[in-house]
């Protein structure tokens, strides 16, 4: 492990790592030069990059404490206890966290896997959070929302003077009178529009989406990709059906996890296999998974820590 590089190089590597996330041409070129200058630079950079990637799956589970909030121990205590006791076991009750800094009016809403929650921001604007979702709202600004991770369906009352703006990572979705669905996980943003129109990242790199269109943004390296989506499929999870037109099984597994509140993964060998069809959730919870296997053309097995989809026919008896 490249841990013997000296602290000064490590400190520089950390600075680069921080700058590169929103880095411009000059930053990247200067970084390439620094990297090539000395082998130890590359080792130090690799270490910090790997550290940062490694905390990815843990970040949704950490609690960011903020001092002014320490008085409100009842809610917080429960939240923390829940997290450490069962976050990985997917049994956290929903928690609303208040935090007073920097914007005292902001608050978090977090749903557990399998849970749904509706937040009304004003008379005409309503956000439905799917399971395993983390969002931030602002009591003083009903036109603001931020989706840290997970999935939510938005029904937004349009106001030309004051458009609704959703922050998703470093991106912005601005509505123009709309029903739209947004998923944010592992650095990927997916937006689908059922009604009206939205503008993704208004400004020089704006992408506008009409009803029946969706986009995928995989972050810095790839460009936003726009494709068509059946309107009835947008946010259909809310009514218990999941509609797919060629989505990889890894995504189907992810969405089933969110909807059913159990951990479901697709084995790597079939993770990219496309699925076409509609899954109607019948309310029987995880029990339905076994029956879904044939529809998905996979075998679904229960394991100690969740469910796994494997190639059909590979199941243990």
């Amino acid at each position: 492990m490249p841990y013997d590089v000296d602290d000064n190089i490590c400190a520089r590597a950390i600075e680069w790592h921080i700058r590169l996330r929103d880095g411009d041409d000059a930053t990247w070129e200067a970084f390439a030069e620094w990297l090539a200058a000395n082998e130890r630079h590359a080792e130090a950079y690799e270490a910090i990059e790997a550290d940062d990637l490694a905390i990815d799956p843990l970040l949704p589970l950490v609690v960011i404490r903020e001092a002014a909030n320490d008085q409100d121990t009842p809610a917080r205590g429960r939240w923390r206890g829940g997290l450490f006791g069962g976050a990985i076991a997917a049994s956290v009750a929903a928690a609303v966290l208040l935090f007073s800094s920097p914007a005292p009016s902001r608050y978090h809403v977090v749903t557990a896997p399998g849970e749904r929650r509706v937040v009304a921001l004003d008379a005409a604007t309503e956000v439905t959070l799917n399971g395993a979702t983390r969002m931030t709202f602002d009591r003083k600004d009903p036109r603001f929302a931020s989706l840290a991770s997970g999935e939510a369906l938005f029904r937004v009352g349009h106001d030309v003077q004051n458009p609704f703006r959703l922050q998703v990572g470093g991106n912005v979705v601005e509505d123009a009178g709309t029903v739209f669905n947004v998923v944010h996980e592992r650095g990927e943003v997916r937006v689908a529009v059922a009604e009206g129109k939205i503008v993704y990242n208004p400004g020089a790199r704006a992408v506008s989406l009409d009803a029946g269109q969706s986009l995928v943004d995989r972050g810095g390296a790839t460009r936003v990709k726009v494709s068509d989506v059946p309107i009835t499929a947008v946010g259909s999870w809310k009514s218990g059906s999941l509609v797919y037109a060629g989505a990889p099984l890894s995504r189907v597994a992810e969405e089933l996890s969110r909807a059913l509140g159990v951990r479901i993964t697709a084995a790597p060998s079939i993770a990219d296999q496309p699925f076409f069809g509609t899954i109607i959730l019948d309310g029987s919870g995880a029990g339905q998974l076994r029956r879904l296997g044939s529809a998905l053309n996979v075998s679904v097995e229960e394991r100690a820590d969740g469910w796994i989809m494997r190639p059909a026919g590979s199941a243990a008896p």
């Binding site: 411009d24 990247w28 390296a221 790839t222 990709k225 726009v226």
Partner: peptide
């Protein structure tokens, strides 16, 4: 293969794409 629109900071974009592919 992808339909890629105009990009501001195109070199940064290509470097970061290269880095992601490397990972």
């Amino acid at each position: 293969a992808d339909h890629i629109g105009p990009v501001s900071q195109a070199r940064a974009y290509l470097y970061s794409m290269t880095n992601n592919h490397f990972l």
